[in-house]
Each structure stands twice: as structure tokens, then as C-alpha cells.
């Protein structure tokens, strides 16, 4: 087994990196892969909460890199999905507690035991981000169809290209089909055109994601939800499958078409 290390990053905060990491972890594990999700946001950890594992943390990533415990001791096993593990970040330390070299070493230690190592990157472009991308074989960039998020995604793409990391592909999160239809939101095509990068998934806005975060139960465990399906599709694409993109209706409805027709007329 030689794990693929995938870093999930975004530049801007609050666009859904942690949600994406937790759900891709769940989705890949449900596809029978051995997965470890790593929270590299030292000092502001959140992946544990997204996965509902916050009360099981004893050791964290800094304890491992500083030699206080072995890697195996710090890994928390998810009880709902077999072969899904969390390596939590330290909450009471800062980014400088871990170096990019530490991250590379740590991931190399896990490569033999897992199929996927998913690293949840902190926001920003400082050391936390550098730590997160150092061991990456692939990078997933999360953005929302909003000006600040796309701008930051562009900056991140530039940095990743400069570091010769990658390939990088894009997840567009929180797309609101309604708003797109009425011309009030950037479309998937707009974002792709601007960023000129491969698309790997589109996640529709869904209140169920907020509920799932509140409960600490990743939405990917719910097989009747569209956002969940979107995450499962990304997982399958990561495994090399060709999966068509969800039909998130961006097409105008009949009345809108009629209006456009008259205007053009």
C-alpha cells in the first residue's frame, strides 16, 4: 500500500476545507479505502469537531513530532466507518511547532499503512499552509463562487504552481442553483474560466451540512443527501473513475427562457 497524500486548501477561510476533508475521508473509507485525515491547523483545530471525535483526543500531531508519543497512539479511529482515522492538531500550540519537514516525515510514516492521507490545511498562505502542502502528492482547492474566495484560490494556485506541487484541482462549494439561475452568482463555468484549473467537484449549498457539522456527523454518512452524493462523486473521481457532474440546475426555467428570448428578439 502506498498512500496518496492529498492536501485540501483554499487560501480564504470559511469556504469549507474542513467540511470537504471530513466528508472526503468518510466517502473514501466507505469505498473500502484505508484513510487518515490530518488536521494541520495547529492552534485552531476543527476537523475533530467536524467528525465528532473531539472528546476522544489524547495525543495530537505535535506530541508525535516532538516524540511524546508514537504515531499510532495519536490516531483516533472513527467508530462509524471502518478504516477511517483522525490525526488531530494541537490546540494549545502554534504553527511553528511543526515544520514542513516534520509533515513530510510524518506522511512518509503513514504511506505504508493507508491508501489516502488527507490533510486539512489552515487558511492563509503562511507556515501552516506551507506545512500542509509540503507532503502533498495532489492538491484540492476549495472555493465558493464568490469574488474574495476565487481571488484567494487564484493566489493559492499560483503558489502551488511555484512550488511545483500538484496537480491541483478545484472543488466549488456552496453553489446556489437558484442564485446562479437568476444571474446573481458566478457559475461553475465562470470560475473555471477565471482560474483555468481542472474541476473535480461541485457541492451544492445545503443546510443539512450545517446540521451535520453541529452534530459532528459528516454529511457523507447520509446516503440520501445531494451534497453527500457530491462528496462521494469526488471520492470516486479521486480513485480514477469517470463520474458525470451532478445536475445542479443552472439552466434557466421556462419563463426565464421566454424573457431572454424576447429581450434578444
Amino acid at each position: 500500500m502506498a498512500a496518496m497524500v492529498i492536501t485540501i486548501t483554499s487560501g480564504k477561510g470559511g469556504v469549507g476545507k474542513t467540511t470537504a476533508t471530513a466528508n472526503l475521508g468518510v466517502a473514501l473509507a466507505l469505498l473500502g479505502k484505508r484513510v487518515v485525515v490530518v488536521d494541520s491547523d495547529i492552534g485552531l483545530r476543527n476537523l475533530d469537531v467536524a467528525m465528532g471525535l473531539e472528546n476522544r483526543i489524547v495525543y495530537d500531531i505535535v506530541d508525535v513530532t516532538e516524540g511524546y508519543c508514537r504515531l499510532r497512539q495519536a490516531l483516533i479511529r472513527d467508530k462509524r466507518v471502518s478504516e477511517l482515522y483522525l490525526l488531530p492538531a494541537a490546540q494549545t500550540r502554534d504553527k511553528t511547532a511543526v515544520s514542513p519537514e516534520d509533515m513530510v516525515r510524518l506522511c512518509d510514516q503513514m504511506r505504508d499503512d493507508f491508501n489516502f492521507v488527507l490533510i486539512d490545511s489552515p487558511a492563509g498562505i503562511e507556515q501552516g499552509f506551507r506545512n500542509a502542502i509540503a507532503p502533498a502528492d495532489e492538491v484540492l482547492i476549495v472555493t465558493t463562487p464568490e469574488v474574495p474566495a476565487v481571488r484567494d484560490a487564484d493566489r493559492i494556485i499560483g503558489l502551488i504552481e511555484a512550488e511545483e506541487k500538484g496537480p491541483a484541482s478545484l472543488i466549488i462549494n456552496r453553489l446556489k442553483p437558484e442564485m446562479v439561475r437568476y444571474g446573481n452568482m458566478l457559475t461553475t463555468a465562470d470560475v473555471i474560466e477565471i482560474l483555468a484549473i481542472d474541476l473535480i467537484g461541485i457541492i451544492p449549498e445545503d443546510e443539512a451540512i450545517i446540521v451535520s457539522m453541529n452534530k459532528g456527523i459528516p454529511i457523507a454518512l447520509d446516503d440520501a443527501n445531494r451534497a453527500s452524493l457530491a462528496f462521494h462523486n469526488i471520492a470516486r473521481r479521486l480513485l480514477g473513475e469517470e463520474v458525470p457532474f451532478l445536475d445542479i440546475r443552472e439552466m434557466p426555467n421556462l419563463i426565464e427562457r421566454f424573457v431572454r428570448f424576447i429581450r434578444q428578439g
Binding site: 481571488r151 493566489r155 437568476y182 444571474g183 446573481n184 452568482m185 458566478l186 465562470d190 424573457v259
Partner: peptide, 25 residues
Amino acid sequence: LFGQRRPSSREIAKERLQLVLAYDR
């Protein structure tokens, strides 16, 4: 229905982004 189409917020967003990115890049 027939009036002058004003640019949608989507179009404004796209234009602003292109401008801002031109500078960033």
C-alpha cells in the same frame, strides 16, 4: 421584459474578479 438589460451581479462579479486577478497575477 423589454427594457435595457442591466449587468447582473454575476457579470459584475466576473468583471471585478478579472480586474483584481490581473493585478494580483
